[in-house]
């Protein structure tokens, strides 16, 4: 049993971290009353921007400066996802475009953007396979805690991850703290619940919406970065990221808009997502697809449960998806 857990848990965590970034970022955005369905696209853009940065830095160098090797992809990823967030905000906050349509368009755009530049880089690198391998940068990103190996199974389960994994947990805790225990968080929740009330209380609604959405986008983007450089060991191939962005949005609902729950729920989702790899040998592999449905079934189940329970705190922010016009009051 322990042997199974030692193999299973680290892989579940590896799958879960991108989801954790995506869902925490999306939760923060949704708390401002904006449903950003572009999260999948933003994670994609975050990933490819990191890849572009790393590609430009790594190509032609024998050894990498560890600081630059991490900072360049990281900054590229943050800038790329910030720009996506700004674009989304401009369309939905300033121009009051329909949030669902904008978000879906952003996802389509983000995936296209990623595949276009991914394809170009693959051409430039003259690789045999349709992928780019940035193993030196990946080695920096995937560096594990030095003492992990000496702690036996405890080390393998708890300490065998890279810094971005621990950062995800810290960010989830941090966002949770800000939302629930600070003035800023209180004001932000009010903006998402009732922008007119927040406005009357002297809160700058537009600024809160922009800030929350853009920071949310940057957090989500980090999920893409983690996926490429840690989970996929620095190998970018088009469309490999798959439907993780949607899984992240499903997680927001599953965690009833509480980032702190995202920590265990992401890992659980990650586990469900890879469960099919642990099907006992000999079973019909067609069943694999059914296993992959598990996280979505869990989300549906959660939706049903929260609807039955009908507690006001477990509902989405009241003005989620609605544009705010001050003149409407």
């Amino acid at each position: 049993m322990l042997g199974f857990l030692i193999r299973f848990i680290p892989r579940a965590v590896g799958q879960g971290i991108p989801l954790m970034y995506g869902s925490v970022g999306e939760t923060l955005t949704e708390k401002s009353g904006h449903l950003n369905l572009g999260t999948a696209g933003i994670m994609y853009v975050g990933g490819i921007c990191g890849v572009i940065g790393a590609f430009l830095y790594e190509t032609g160098r024998k050894t990498l400066n560890p600081f630059l090797g991490i900072a360049i992809p990281l900054v590229c990823c943050l800038v790329g996802s910030l720009l996506m967030g700004l674009l989304y905000c401009f369309l939905t906050v300033s121009l009051r475009a329909n949030q669902n349509v904008t978000g879906l368009a952003m996802t389509t755009f983000g995936i296209g953007f990623g595949n276009f530049f991914g394809g170009s880089l693959i051409k430039l690198s003259h690789a045999d396979l349709p992928s780019i391998a940035l193993s030196k940068t990946s080695a920096l990103f995937a560096a594990k805690l030095p003492f992990a190996g000496s702690l036996g199974w405890v080390g393998k389960i708890f300490f065998s991850y890279s810094f971005l994994a621990y950062a995800a947990i810290l960010i989830a805790l941090g966002v949770s703290y800000v939302l629930n225990h600070t003035r800023t968080g209180l004001n932000l929740r009010a903006v998402g619940e009732s922008p007119a009330t927040a406005d009357a209380a002297g809160i700058n609604v537009t600024r809160y919406k922009y800030t929350a959405t853009c920071i949310g986008a940057m957090i989500s983007g980090l999920g893409g970065l983690y996926y490429v450089f840690d989970y996929a060991s620095g190998v970018w191939s088009n469309n490999a990221f798959g439907d993780r962005g949607w899984l992240a949005i499903a997680l927001v609902i599953f965690t009833i808009w509480q980032p702190v729950h995202s920590i265990w729920a992401s890992i659980a989702f990650g586990g469900l997502y890879i469960l099919h790899m642990f099907i006992p040998a000999g079973t019909n592999l067609a069943i694999k697809e059914i296993y992959q449905m598990a996280p979505f079934l869990a989300t549906i189940l959660m939706l049903i449960l929260t609807s039955i329970n009908n507690k006001r705190e477990n509902q989405p922010p009241a003005s989620l998806g609605l544009s705010y016009f001050r003149e409407d009051r």
């Binding site: 003035r183 009010a190 009732s194």
Partner: peptide, 21 residues
């Protein structure tokens, strides 16, 4: 003009810029 899911206290301090946390 009140936010339903917040408590009375939270509604009252909403938007205020008081000193400290």
């Amino acid at each position: 003009k009140l936010v339903d899911v917040l408590t009375a206290t939270e509604n009252i301090v909403l938007g205020l810029e008081e000193e400290g946390k």
